[in-house]
Write a protein that binds this DNA or RNA. Sequence first.
DNA 1: GATGAATGAGTATTCATTCAT
DNA 2: GATGAATGAATACTCATTCAT
Lengths: 242, 242, 242, 242
Amino acid sequence: MTSITSPAQKGRSPGQGDDGRPLRRDAQRNRERILQAAAEVFTERGLDATLDDVAHHAGVGVGTVYRRFPNKEALAEALYERRVDALAVLAERALAARDSWVGLVSFVEQAAASLAADRGLWQIVMYASYGRDRCAYARERILPLTTKLVQRAQQDGAVRADLSPTDIPAIEFMVGAAAEYARHIRPELWRRYLALILDSLRPSREDTTELPERALSPDEITQLMGSGAAAARIPGLARPHR
Amino acid sequence: MTSITSPAQKGRSPGQGDDGRPLRRDAQRNRERILQAAAEVFTERGLDATLDDVAHHAGVGVGTVYRRFPNKEALAEALYERRVDALAVLAERALAARDSWVGLVSFVEQAAASLAADRGLWQIVMYASYGRDRCAYARERILPLTTKLVQRAQQDGAVRADLSPTDIPAIEFMVGAAAEYARHIRPELWRRYLALILDSLRPSREDTTELPERALSPDEITQLMGSGAAAARIPGLARPHR
Amino acid sequence: MTSITSPAQKGRSPGQGDDGRPLRRDAQRNRERILQAAAEVFTERGLDATLDDVAHHAGVGVGTVYRRFPNKEALAEALYERRVDALAVLAERALAARDSWVGLVSFVEQAAASLAADRGLWQIVMYASYGRDRCAYARERILPLTTKLVQRAQQDGAVRADLSPTDIPAIEFMVGAAAEYARHIRPELWRRYLALILDSLRPSREDTTELPERALSPDEITQLMGSGAAAARIPGLARPHR
Amino acid sequence: MTSITSPAQKGRSPGQGDDGRPLRRDAQRNRERILQAAAEVFTERGLDATLDDVAHHAGVGVGTVYRRFPNKEALAEALYERRVDALAVLAERALAARDSWVGLVSFVEQAAASLAADRGLWQIVMYASYGRDRCAYARERILPLTTKLVQRAQQDGAVRADLSPTDIPAIEFMVGAAAEYARHIRPELWRRYLALILDSLRPSREDTTELPERALSPDEITQLMGSGAAAARIPGLARPHR
DNA sequence: GATGAATGAGTATTCATTCAT
DNA sequence: GATGAATGAATACTCATTCAT
């Protein structure tokens, strides 16, 4: 059960410069500090935080940030890529669970925990569409895995028949929103609403309503993720220079 | 069944100037035009739309906007207040429904439809907290009504026992998030997730999980709504001038 | 002999706002001050001067500059348009001269004086390509007039046969360069080199060399003026935001 | 006929370090690579190219560039010096021509070809003035040679009597401007305007105008080249750090 | 009262130059 | 000595808010 190769790794890995050579020790350390600072700042204040903030938080000049990342979007993307890697690993582990329901739940819960903990991550996944090759989230990496998770559970009769794999990201976004809603007052409240939703995923009963509005198709998810328009809606991120 | 008195009227009513005297006819008309324009602009583009946009849309100068509303936040707040009025009316009507489940559902659905249709409204409710006296949402106007809706349904055995009245706003935020998520590609998709959640509100079965993380108390809702920190997080609203 | 209607006047005249209504008195005054300041600053330091400089020179905030002109390019363009209007008037007057040689010389000299006096103007004309509709310089306004000037002189046998109308702008650029070269030490030195060149425009003798390298065609001039690549070469102007 | 000793060698020669000791073999090789790279990059993109570009092109780090040249200006100056060496050699060869007119023309043409081919060189000469000791252009090396070229031609009656030796650099600048003007569309167009100007250098006729505005004196040329103010006007070179 | 003009702090990004490895 | 990482001042542009007309 190894992690799938990230598409980004075909190009440049986090530890490499533009030319493919490994970064110098100090540069690597600063890169980490910047990513760490970005994580903290974006987690707390979201993507509208300034790169000056991030740089200051990392204890470096803003030029250093730009040496490592061509622009704000790329920095956010690098962060996102890490998190998505982590989510993919979660999904893989969940597929290994003996019980298909337990597997699905464990993935959804852990993924939600990630979104709930990070305002920036939630914004980025919510509004999608970063970079061309790297915004691989649902499309390239997670969606196939969650599709398997859902199908397996359906075969086992563990979830309702009209649940679609594309419902999973939607559910996560909603739970992320719940977390965002009460973040400052009760950071764990989202668990309550995740539980509520999970309950409704169980097999149909006589009083279950057939779900209206068919779920998004995988293509629509792709479209959603890739639409430039969506990116333009993230406040602190809309204007690539030049 | 008349609309409950707005708490805002304890301060200054929409029809009065700073000195308490009623606005001149034309001033009142301008106020309306501005609110109408703000509704349209914020609905479409969210709160990061500029006040120049709003003013232009209203056919007035920005100065006029500032004459009627001390700042952007106050304008948004006034709009929010109106929408809350509308939601309150919905809740009152829902209480009049013969079937308590139907009543609850009808309120939740219509409220969600409002959030889903209005990007600005969702942002405002999402990030909460406008003004001191006027952020009356759950606290003063809606929460008592939804509390009744929920309790009535519980007495009828129509909803699960561990549902809390404060879950209702949380659910609406989540559904609003679902709407925001797919707004451009499938504006009605949120109905799917509302249906999912509604399913889970039904009375417990043997396989129902007890909800973890107790719901917010009414006080916490109040606190949530009133916390100034939250306001600072709305992108288009965050920068106090000077 | 009236001045040809500027293509810009089809859209918005200098005295009108975006909506076509005349500017308020104070706005008009500031617009003038800004243009005046821009003229002075660009004249002295060229187009790489900052808008902050221009604003400060005009005694206004930089926001005011942006209220009147959408970006730096547009400001430069507005200036350029004025100057081009002036040049067109010169050309028209030159056409009215009794003696065709005198007419041609008077135009070339006065136009050169303009370029020589204004570093920014020379840069803009040199590197061309501003705006879509307004970069009308040679193409739409001056070139037809200078073409007439040249042809008339040729018919009178006052200039050499192989002179092309498109040589006129090229000559002006060269003289502008000469002015630029010695601007700080001898602002009028360019007149010497203009005289030199004018001498060579006289009808051929036995020792006159046939000019190599055919002149630019009017289409090539247009292409030169309109090529985005050229614009990218002006240091202070290359990056339209967004 | 050997090349005249460069004034720079009074200070530090290209083959020596700060302490006067000759550079190590590899250091010398790096210096050459950097100059070669700078030549290519500045030729193509002008002086606004970045030193990172130059360094990358040379296959060295920026630090190495700064080890060899104190700053960007000095690098440009070193390049300029080389080119001036080359121009001086051209002038010497031209003096050896049997026909004084042919000699003058051949020098002017070849010098113009250099300026026309090299955007950076033209910028540097246009805006003049590098360093104190090294700005040896007209003053120390070329001007005496061109003076001889001109005087010889005048004695032979091959050029007009009022031509001054200091007109030669001015003419070259103008022709360089013509080249710059049409560089992308017709790289050889400058030859047309050079031919035009050369025509006017011929001996006076009855219709020749006496040149107005006496030419620069040698002292003025020196002053022009040495004026610090001019240096500040080269776009890619203007900003002294700190 | 209404208007829209003026303001200027704030944001992303670049690049010459310095300095640790 | 070489490298390339770090720095931060500088630049174009936006928009909430204030103020003169």
